[in-house]
Simulated assay, not measured.
Amino acid sequence: MDQDYLETTKDVYREAAENPQEGLCCTTTPVWQLPGLQVPAKMMTMNYGCGSTIHLRDLVNDPKILYVGVGGGMELLQFSYFSRQAAGVTGVDIVDEMLQVCKENLAEAERQNPWFSSDFISLVKGDALQLPVEDDSMDIAAQNCLFNIFKQDDLKKAIQEMYRVLKPHGRLVLSDPVCEQQMPENLKEDKRLRALCLSGSLPLNEYIKMITNAGFGTVEIRARRAYRILDPLNYDTTERLFIESVEVCAIKDPMPADGPCVFTGKTAIYHGDQQYFDDGLGHVLMHNQPLAVCDKTAANLAGLNRPDIFISNSTWFYDGGGCC
């Protein structure tokens, strides 16, 4: 298998560690402003991601957290805010220079934040395709704008590795670019563009399929936002390519017999002449009260052809409270 592209990726992020590049990525999510949290300026400059993997409803009961691809350490610091314990957060990266700069940034964060200790975070050299982490040991595993770099076979391995290290019902939180148009082969094979998290962008449904194929029984699409344009003027393409960033949570739930529950922001509303509607499958719609439903349940309800049940389109923003 040709893995030369991974060496190019290491070179790109080695340079990004030694010479921080504010414009390397374009984060679509505002940085969390948390009480008592100060993010050092260099750490902020090195926020090399396309979204956020910090979601407050995941971060309860002092979770053990794995973060792959440490960048400047900002999300490691944010995660440690919710897991203030020795080695509560493990950061894994393959690039020595990035690990060193991250360590320096965390030392500065310790000077600026009285509550924070560098002992909260364990930095480990390792490969996303063979994580140096025990099976079933993490409550949360996260990556931001890393998996988009991998070609399909390597992406499959990376997702399987995250599944392996998560505890039952643990959460894989991802932020990656996606593209619904067909990415030209010449751009896919451009090693630098792939390293910059652009030309490896998959359609969202393909991305979700790779996650569910690894065994994740529940998937939440938490955000979907405009990200970048690859245009004929600046890139070797004959059409304008629109890239979005998505934030996804995949939960290590058992796989339902009828397939995974994927939440894309659909809602069902019953507005008939009864107090509620029960579909007999565990879903109760109270009168005129919206219920977030997974795509599978939405399709089943739509198949009933009832004029008193309304199903919304996907909003691509889901924040819990759903049917499953």
Rank of each mutant, 00 (worst) to 15 (best):
M1I: 04
D2E: 14
R14Y: 12
A17R: 05
P20W: 15
Q21W: 11
E22G: 11
V31H: 10
W32H: 09
Q33L: 14
G36M: 04
A41F: 09
M44L: 14
T45F: 07
G49L: 10
C50T: 09
S52V: 12
T53G: 05
I54L: 15
R57M: 03
D58I: 04
D58R: 13
V60S: 07
N61W: 15
P63A: 06
P63D: 07
K64R: 14
I65Q: 11
L66M: 07
G71Y: 09
M74R: 15
L76H: 07
V89H: 12
D93W: 14
I94P: 04
V95T: 03
M98A: 00
L99F: 09
Q100D: 11
K103A: 14
N105R: 12
L106I: 04
A107I: 14
A107R: 15
E108I: 15
A109H: 05
E110F: 06
Q112W: 01
N113W: 08
D119Y: 12
F120W: 09
F120G: 00
L123W: 07
V124M: 13
D127T: 11
A128S: 15
A128P: 07
A128H: 15
Q130R: 14
P132F: 14
V133F: 13
M138D: 02
I140N: 03
A141N: 13
A141F: 13
L146S: 03
I149G: 03
Q152A: 15
D153Y: 13
D153M: 13
I159C: 05
E161Q: 14
L166A: 02
S175C: 05
C179H: 09
E185G: 00
E185L: 10
L187A: 01
E189D: 12
E189W: 13
D190M: 10
R192Q: 12
C197Q: 10
L198D: 02
G200P: 09
S201K: 06
P203D: 11
P203E: 13
I208R: 14
K209D: 02
N213A: 15
A214Y: 10
G217W: 08
R222A: 01
R222M: 06
R222N: 03
R222P: 01
A223N: 01
A223K: 02
R228N: 02
R228Y: 01
I229Y: 08
D231M: 04
R240M: 11
I243S: 01
I243A: 00
V246H: 02
E247A: 09
A250G: 04
P254T: 04
M255I: 03
A257K: 13
D258R: 09
P260Q: 08
V262S: 06
K266G: 01
H271I: 03
H271T: 01
G272T: 02
Q274L: 12
Q275M: 12
L281A: 10
N288V: 08
V293Y: 06
V293L: 11
A298M: 09
A299I: 09
I309L: 03
F310W: 10
F317N: 11
G320K: 00
G321N: 02
G321F: 00
